[in-house]
Nucleic acid binder design. Structure first.
Lengths: 227, 227
DNA sequence: TGTACATCAGTGAACGCGCGTTCACTGATGTAC
DNA sequence: TGTACATCAGTGAACGCGCGTTCACTGATGTAC
């Protein structure tokens, strides 16, 4: 903005070609998406409490109340962000899962599947701490990623279901007594979830990446042997 | 307060004998303690975010700024609450610990000690959810209960040290290979911490007390066998 | 034992902040004629 | 192809809320004489 130049030119004449927040058109185009993206970015940067409706509208370059055209309120925006975070976690786990499926020998493959879920979980918690935290704001809503038929058909299962499938494979391969199977998800999940938190902001926060990887490995071995 | 009675009498003449929030004396007596107690009560009821300085002063029947005579600010009050919560957790664990020490056979006793730490931890998380949450707000401050010589001499060790001592006993009794000892605290802690959270506001929230106890038992067995 | 005085714990009023949310509006877009 | 109009996405201004914190003060208490 050149000093001395009448404001008129800047705000009016140039407004359409500015790279600034000023949109070229009155309408936004895809504000719902922009708000969700902003919300996800906020969660990524600062965890669940950073998901602030007004800040999301600010980032979208829009008035605060514009959000109410696309979300019933703050809670609805947050829910959408949380669903996105859960999906991202699921994808991280599925990437590891795909590798495990390549293992030939059934028992080894079953163990690899269990480890894959744990590795994906721990990796996501560390790589996307804010999203991970946002994903696990329980309380009023359900934890479970709701069974989404389209998604299940297209790609696979949600994280909890993947863990269950891995444990089933373990039983089928004879690596886990069938009578220990029921409820085993919760034992495995506990161990991995707890370590994720200790690494995120607990005493393992300061550990090096190598130390963390080694500890994760040991934890997963402990779960395998202990189940 | 009798209707029709001049306000004068109530606020002035009767103020000293009122059971109401109005103190009998201008000074409070032990406001620091009252604020801390209120803060702890708030944490107990609503977790860390419920520890609000103004509400603590309200409960102590005092002006908001009066808190600044005893705490540098909100953070200082919260830190005091958190320290209290950590102490309460330690006591819960020590109660279980004391029972375990009665076991005669060394290996069985060592296992009982490990289980005691886990049981105390899980029990506290469920009985005092708000305090448990407040205790585990990491972030800027250290996790560890600072080594308090007076306390260590008087009663014992902090939770983390108790866990370490139990694992040492396990090694001494030949129930755990010495080369698996280093870092084992983090594996055990992960499992128990994770389950505590799943029970607090995760998928195990809805489980009955009996189910929870059974799952806790299984988890601790898993840790014992898996280490 | 009584009086003057310093201390400092609590008061009362006000601040700025950012939040979520509501109101009446405006003007770009798509549709019907 | 042009014009009238309904729709509804975004605007601008304001709300009440509770928070942490600061200011200049007041008056009960303990101490020195």
């Amino acid at each position: 903005m050149q000093p001395g130049l009448p404001r008129f030119f800047v705000t009016t004449r140039h407004s359409r070609t500015d790279a600034a927040p000023r949109r070229p058109t009155y309408r936004h185009g895809d504000l719902r998406r922009a708000l969700l993206d902003a919300g996800v970015a906020l969660a990524r940067e600062g965890g669940p409490s950073a998901v602030v409706l007004r800040e999301a509208t600010r980032r979208a370059g829009v008035a605060p109340n514009a959000a109410y055209r696309h979300f019933a309120g703050h809670q609805a925006l947050f829910d959408a962000v949380r669903a996105h975070a859960l999906g991202a976690l699921a994808q991280a786990i599925e990437r590891e899962w795909a590798k495990a499926l390549k293992v030939r020998e059934p028992a080894a493959r079953a163990r690899a599947m269990v480890r894959a879920v744990g590795t994906g979980y721990l990796g996501f918690a560390q790589a996307e701490t804010g999203l991970f935290r946002a994903a696990f704001v329980f309380g009023e809503h359900d934890v479970q990623v709701p069974p989404d038929p389209a998604r299940a058909a297209a790609m696979g299962l949600n994280p909890f279901e993947l863990l269950g499938a891995a444990l089933d494979a373990l039983v089928a391969a004879g690596a886990l007594p069938a009578d220990r199977r029921p409820g085993a998800e919760y034992l495995a999940w506990s161990a991995v979830h707890g370590m994720a938190l200790l690494m995120i902001d607990g005493p393992l926060r300061g550990a090096s990446a190598a130390q963390r990887r080694a500890l994760g490995e040991r934890l997963l071995r402990m779960v395998e042997n202990g189940l």
